[in-house]
Design a protein around this nucleic acid. Structure first.
Lengths: 348, 348
DNA sequence: TTGTAAGCGTTATCAG
DNA sequence: CTGATAACGCTTACAA
């Protein structure tokens, strides 16, 4: 026993284990485990002794050992899909905001979040569950990166996951209420007296959301007895550049218009810039509305009227859906509510 | 053995272990471990057999078991400090960009990243190492949250960490080359013919960086035989509001000025808005330069001339410094290089 | 209410 | 070059 004490002292330099706490508290190791885990079968006096000993020794459970034993990790993996070759810092701010809300929601439910940015086959990786690094996976990103979605869409059965931005309706998605949002935006412009409203977007983009937003716009237009008009964006460019060019094309086409609905804020901002530089007055001559509620929209001149998703609900829904799936429930898609944020790019 | 086969089949439903691979490849379990870990002592034919068996069985190592045995996690924890009560999604975009670059750098070095957003004593938590959840910790955030820095500054000895935004020089920090950046900004304004340049900032803010930026500005001013002037921001407000008010105060004071150097982009943007709304023409009447290079600056009217840190270097430095510390090197602070980004808020 | 003991699935040491 | 075998530190039946 003398020897064992020396060993212990040496050991403590490296790591305090539940055995050390047990010895200090005068109980067995399993009692320590139970007491600290909050097991109700432990008597209060014992628990107190254990807790105090643990505190004094500065003991913390080794999560690796605990997880190995439990077979669960208490961790969710979060993969952010970037455009191929894109610098991580240039990721669309909308996704960063969603990342923040998702981490917050996970933390509120007692989960850790393992984050990875991925953009191309060299770094696609989703075997978090097989490696016991996480209990499930959240994938967030632009639909444009089809290779990425192909990859995650074909992960082995038994992998729990949810996603935002999926190009396929077959995936377990959470997404904005795009239809309602687009209708909100369009009706707002109609109410403000704009008539010739053009949508800058695409029905063929893998970005599912864009199609839905166009549909909402179109529905609101028809409701008002007006014809929906789509000015298509060019595939593959940065969003603001798409907006830029689409606006330039629209102007060049000679078509009459007095308002623009951009299917994303960055597209709308690009269009706004083009309009202004060509001498159009916004919101007097032309109204502009975007979709997403990115921070930059508040800084443009005029600041951009937009549709904003409820980020908190979005993060919570992603996490809750995933946890439900882990718990065995079948996946079921969800919509996140949106609201109109009126700023200066539409007239009073 | 017949029985063992049945067991195996049943087991495979739950999890494939290295034993299963060993059996399939006709080698011992430890050989599987070595072969898959790239141990050089394994012969090529054996390795091939093992690799194939692993692939066929869809085997992946259980990282929890591996980590328990190794005593290392291959993971870095990243704590983002928010303002108390602030919604996670509203975190300064600069920090989100840094988060992205840091994750990229960690991935490039073979580390996973565990991300947490923290804002107040209820959720301060940094015992990642003690719990064997990570090998070290990166803390990123505003110096304003002094409670947070007090907390992380007093983590037990033996915890490896680095930080960005530390209010104390005693912490193991990485930060922008604020002095050089501010001099760059100020000289740029001087060259463009501005003379009465006022700095919007603070020398007393816990935000160490602000003091350094003021110093750089002051040095460049004196170099040119001019007097540095500080217009103080009010403590505790959102940055843009601080800029707003400081600009308003400056105007109200009647002091002559023809340029403003904001110690952060959001402060500069707030000032820009105020100036414009009061009828000043930027950049003709007044020049404005910020610091940070946030995305929103590109969307303001006029777009904001600014100083941008090299995000990639920043992320790499944070990760490299931390890994070095984990490896036993003493901490040593580092500066991240900056560059001038000329946009429209300073005249030609 | 508490103690004993059996794993969880690896990696690493030690033979051979 | 490969095979036994002992940890790693915890959780959880099973006993008492």
């Amino acid at each position: 026993m003398g020897e064992s004490k020396v060993q212990m002292t040496e050991k403590r330099l490296t790591r305090v284990t539940s055995f050390d706490v047990a010895e200090a508290a005068g109980v067995s190791q399993s009692t320590v485990s139970r007491a600290l885990a909050g097991d109700t079968s432990i008597s209060e006096p014992t628990r107190r002794r254990v807790t105090e000993a643990a505190q004094k020794l500065n003991y913390q459970v080794d999560e690796n050992a605990a997880r190995l034993r439990r077979g669960k990790t208490g961790t969710l993996a979060l993969v952010m899909i970037c455009r191929p070759g894109e610098n991580r810092k240039d990721l669309n701010p909308f996704y960063f905001a969603l990342l923040g809300s998702t981490c917050a929601a996970a933390a509120a439910r007692g989960y850790e979040v393992l984050v990875a940015f991925q953009d191309s086959p060299e770094n696609f990786w989703g075997h978090y569950q097989e490696r016991r690094k996480a209990d499930g996976l959240i994938v967030i990103g632009t639909s444009e990166n089809t290779a990425a979605w192909d990859y995650f869409g074909s992960l082995p059965e038994g992998n729990h996951w949810v996603c935002w931005g999926a190009p396929s309706d077959a995936f377990p998605w959470v997404r904005s209420d795009n239809l309602a949002g687009a209708m909100l935006a369009t009706r707002h412009m109609l109410v403000r007296g704009y008539k010739d409203i053009v949508c800058l977007g695409s029905e063929t983009s893998p970005q599912r959301q864009f199609k839905e937003r166009f549909d909402g716009y179109a529905e609101a237009m028809r409701e008002a007895g007006l014809n929906p008009i789509m000015q298509r964006i060019e595939r593959g460019l940065p969003r603001e550049e798409q907006g830029h060019r689409a606006a330039a094309d629209l102007i060049a086409s000679g078509r009459k218009f007095d308002a623009i609905f951009g299917v994303s804020d960055e597209i709308a901002l690009g269009a706004l810039k083009e309009l202004t530089s060509q001498g159009y007055k916004v919101p007097q001559d032309v109204g502009v509305v975007g979709f997403d509620g990115v921070r930059a929209g508040a800084w443009s001149t005029p600041p951009l009227t937009t549709i904003e998703s409820d980020f908190e609900v979005a993060g919570s829904l992603l996490v809750d859906r995933l946890i439900a799936t882990i718990g065995g429930e079948p996946p079921s898609p969800r919509r996140v509510p949106v609201r109109l944020v009126v700023r200066g790019s539409t007239r009073d």
